[in-house]
Nucleic acid binder design. Structure first.
Lengths: 275, 275
DNA sequence: AAGTAATTTTCACTTAGTGAAAACACCCCT
DNA sequence: AGGGGTGTTTTCACTAAGTGAAAATTACTT
């Protein structure tokens, strides 16, 4: 309400601008100084000084060949540090490895952020071959993935409805839920059953089971999933053993996080981000 | 030479300070605002505003429980973007997967930065069990690892010598090279043979073969390695097949990067960072 | 070698970041 | 409960530090 787009009166403008540059470069397109200046609308002296400073810290690096800027090595190191400081990940990992080895399929750990799924960890199944190697840090729509649906199911329903009422639910496959009311009803079902299935709502040939992780406050802070190709996992709802096992592992992790009440219906909760 | 510790006259101070905070938090210790202020020496109003801004961008996040700050989700997403924009990684990955599947051992891709090794990619071998899941983004000393030695071997010898002359070569195991002259001679050998071995110089029970990746300018931009436990890989110098295969894969990747001259002794080169 | 585009430097202006200190919120302890 | 202590948020006056325009330089192109 103060400046133009300041989401807070304490924002430091230069810092915002620096992050704008990082965000711009996050699409993987390397850019020249002038391109950056024009695309964001800073004077090129400003962009220059921002880029020099960012480059000093290796947050961006400059291709010595064509002079274009792209994200720098420090980004990787920050992610490493982020991971190392995460209790959730440290506690979940050994269990996820077991789950991966038992099933041979790909196992994910993810959280909800701004109504989207972000992968924290991916363990590539031994059965799975040739897929992308690591999607850690990637964002996915929540309304059409197993992980997303289980996380949405335990989020604040009003916020969920409001959020999805305001945007198109893109139809990725014939199975995709594209109506907000349908989604909300589906999430009710998911919450009651305690797990979510993906029958190819995002990618037609993918099936997946997802289960929630609770913390000591009985809030859902993350979700895990086992996913694989339809060729091995269809129909997914028939594989009661896999569903049970996924839920078990989720409960083990929850317990290790201090969750003490495997009661029937824990209260709504946030993913930890938007409290 | 100008201000106090400004490595450039174009540095923007606030930005430097913001990065200082991120660096501080990179040890994984969550900290309270006052702790951060005291440790870095900013007034707490300054730290406050920096942290608020960083938090707005999810570069740090605040534990709603104890109010401590730690690195935020955006760090992960930046790393994802960094990866996606890396030609090297995209080109190398399929070859590394082959190498991993053939050997069953753990395969790494790494670069040299500030005379240290930074992992860009780690593919966990199927034989390997229970080790850490992902050390991507981690730093390792270069002088006592296979990846490090091959990268140092093709770096500027003077810079290498100067760097290591100024610091202790810590003895991790009885095999660790702790003398700078020994190191330099060893690097000569490595350069001549075209690959590096680790016979437990960093971790006693680890063996490893590493080979260099050349780009279109015949500069060494990265290295790959295959590593495993001494129980399977000792003595490593006897496993000529593994060495050959590692070199082959490295050459394949180099070729795909545009390297055209498998001549005997390519010129010295940087890892891309310190040119 | 001239011409054009991109980057780097300078410079005067004043915005916008700064630290001190005050106001406020939150525990913990008796 | 109350109250002292710790930690966070807000205010405020000051001027250092970031800003854009434009010039100087360098790097590409033809």
């Amino acid at each position: 309400m103060r400046g133009h787009r300041n989401s807070g009166q304490y924002n430091i403008r230069v810092l915002d601008r620096a992050v704008q540059i990082l965000t711009l470069l996050s699409d993987g397109q390397p850019r020249t100084l002038t391109e950056i200046s024009e695309e964001i609308g800073f004077s090129n002296s400003t962009s220059f000084r921002l880029l020099v400073t960012l480059a000093n810290h290796h947050l961006v690096e400059r291709d010595p060949k064509d002079g274009r800027y792209r994200l720098g090595l420090r980004c990787l190191e920050l992610a490493r540090a982020y991971h190392d400081s995460s209790d959730l990940r440290r506690i979940a990992l050994p269990e996820l490895e077991k789950l991966r080895d038992e099933t041979g399929e790909t196992v994910h750990l993810a959280i909800l952020d701004e109504m989207e799924v972000v992968y924290l960890e991916k363990l590539h199944g031994h059965h799975a071959i040739g897929l992308m190697s690591s999607r850690v840090g990637a964002r996915l729509p929540a309304y059409c993935t197993g992980l997303g649906k289980i996380l949405l199911a335990y989020a604040n329903p009003e916020e969920v409805r409001d959020y999805f009422a305001q945007r198109e639910l893109h139809r990725f496959t014939p199975e995709t839920i594209t109506d907000v009311s349908d989604l909300m009803h589906h999430l009710d079902q998911v919450r009651i059953s305690g797990y979510a299935l993906d029958r190819g709502e995002h990618e037609a040939e993918v099936r997946c089971v997802a289960a929630p992780i609770f913390d000591a406050d009985s809030k859902v802070v993350a979700a895990i999933s086992v996913s694989g190709p339809a060729s091995r996992m269809d129909p997914i709802e028939a594989d009661q053993a896999l569903i049970e096992r996924t839920l078990q592992v989720a409960q083990t992790i929850s317990a290790k996080l201090g969750y003490r009440h495997p009661v029937s219906r824990p209260p709504f909760s946030q993913g930890g981000k938007n409290a």
